[in-house]
Write a protein that binds this DNA or RNA. Structure first.
Lengths: 339, 339
DNA sequence: TTGTACGCGTTATCAA
DNA sequence: TTGATAACGCGTACAA
């Protein structure tokens, strides 16, 4: 288990530790002969410099972390994959850490402890910078503040906290939601239920986008809390817009099942819809450009680390990649749909 | 700016660093008054012990890595999620590293460089142990050998290399494939195409399992290379068994499209099938118990790290979780496909 | 109960 | 071109 260390190869080569250190890092100030010999010996003995010690004296690790609550949503997979790719291409190694906490389940105490733990480690020189995807419903300010204080390079991805001065990469959420609303209207919706909350900037932007579009189109809409009152006043076809199938639409659906089934339904969500449109006769999906988002986040973080000039917009909004429509697989459900 | 360290709070409390060190770790040999005071000050100043330094003096990092080629398959998501969970519960932090290389795409050179890089880092004291999911088609022996030499705790998950003496957690692959075959036969298959290759232990086990089951059932079968010759001799209904939809069944399907469409089809795969059974009238899915596999892998790795007694079977085969059937959503297909 | 002094493996700053 | 020495932040025998 004991690994070969610098002093070992120094002793064997009959040079000082410092010489060995320099030789191994390819310092030109060491004579070529000596350098080659030392390198050879080091290689032969399978020497691996101890990163812990290196970091302790304060070097770069060429390592970045992607810290996120969980891998539950498909967006997360995509972001992780692309970020990892991009990091590799830039000769960095990206490590992914999940802290298992989101707005819903899990005890806030325990999980936010893991969150803190991870960020704590990040501040101890183990990584050159951090990409954070904050939790949707909880406020991460207190947890992230120390990072800002230390001035450890930080970039927000997807979601973000407004009161940090670091780069942010997110989607054109306002526009995406607006398009969802427009398409719902174009598909015949007589009224719209907006489920975007305002617990975080992303949902807020989406709420605003949907709202603006509907005002402009002159279509009535309401928010979750007013469904009881408003739903009847809507026409026969109702659209329900929310951020995700599993955490927004489905809970809402099961809560207001009987009322909703009195209408023809259209769902509008971000990212993806798994399976059949179900009680709805159509699902609209605004697909985020995860690949581009992740790549941008990594690039910006690395620029920050290497102190290069930043690209202008601190808050970068990546356009929605695609607006997809899904209908039941084998044609009709309900009276009839489409064309 | 720079973080508060032990010497800071020692100076403020007018005690020696060592006393502060003891107090903070709750050593009983320090007077209760002093201890409480020091703890209070440390808390107030937001002191966080530097793990790097702690580790350097010879502790553990309470950190483990999960190294895998990519996050392409849904199995991977599940494994990552559960492993992360389990690690957190054991008060370890799990970091996920992807090296972007699998049997298919990507230049072997560049990607296996990242692979090496990651494992190199692993051997530099930054982690207490590593869980590896090897690549399916390529041999990782050379890359993993150094890890074994160093005796860094290592556990294989899902797939594995036979010639390492570390714990292995995988599925009951042989039995799973056998069940797939049996179910295919029970569903009326008159002949079976086995696409499990023998490039790795997992596929090998599956191939053997399917083969044994079919011999026992007296149903004719063939491997990929003999399809041309054998397919006609099969009856009207043919089953195709492979490890995954995207990397096995679909490529095979498109390669032998016209021949296959002369038969009624059943597909059998592991883990999941996304979307409609397509030209097949039924899909059989052997779902691996990723949660249990990941948890076992983490537990075993931690046991190894903490030098606890190992559970007997070095090669643990977790039973298949479920054998699912998927048929086209709205009843039968056949005469007319797709619109 | 507390302080002294050394070690952990490297890098960096001086001298030589 | 090389060597001695001081950091880096912390743990811990050993001494007081």
């Amino acid at each position: 288990m004991s690994r070969v260390k610098l002093s070992d190869i120094a002793r064997i080569c009959r040079v000082d530790i410092s010489t060995a250190s320099r030789a191994i890092r390819g310092d030109v100030r060491v004579k070529v002969q000596t350098r080659d010999k030392i390198k050879k010996v080091a290689n032969r003995m399978g020497y691996r410099p101890n990163q812990l010690a290196r970091n302790l004296v304060g070097g770069a690790t060429r390592t970045i972390w992607l810290v996120l609550p969980s891998l539950d949503a498909s967006v997360d997979h995509r972001l992780v994959r692309s970020a990892s790719h991009q990091a590799n291409e830039c000769d960095y190694t990206l490590f992914v850490a999940l802290h298992d906490s989101d707005s819903f389940g899990s005890l806030a105490t325990n999980t936010s402890n893991h969150y803190k733990l991870i960020l704590d480690r990040a501040m101890q020189g183990t990584t050159d910078g951090v990409i954070v995807i904050p939790r949707r419903g909880l406020n991460d300010k207190k947890i992230l503040d120390p990072i800002a204080r230390i001035k450890l390079p930080l970039v927000f991805l997807d979601n973000y906290l407004a009161d940090f001065s670091c780069p942010i990469v997110t989607s054109e959420n306002e526009q995406g939601a607006a398009e969802l609303a427009q398409r719902a209207v174009a598909s015949g919706a007589n009224g719209v239920v907006i489920l975007f909350d305002n617990l975080n900037p992303v949902d807020e932007a989406r709420r605003i986008g949907a709202q603006k579009a509907l005002v402009k189109a002159g279509i009535p809409f309401c928010y979750q809390q007013d469904v009881h009152r408003e739903l009847q006043s809507f026409g026969p076809m109702v659209a329900v817009l929310g951020s995700s199938q599993s955490s927004t639409i489905l809970p809402f659906l099961s809560k207001h099942f009987t009322e909703l089934l009195q209408h023809r339904l259209i769902f509008g969500v971000f990212d993806d819809w798994i399976g059949d449109p179900s009680p709805a006769e159509k699902v609209l999906v605004a697909v985020q450009d995860c690949d581009r988002m992740a790549r941008q986040a990594v690039s910006r973080l690395i620029a920050l680390i290497e102190r290069k000039k930043q690209q202008p917009p601190r808050l970068l909004r990546v356009p929605i990649k695609e607006l997809r429509e899904q209908v039941p697989l084998l044609g009709l459900r309900r009276p009839d749909c489409r064309d």
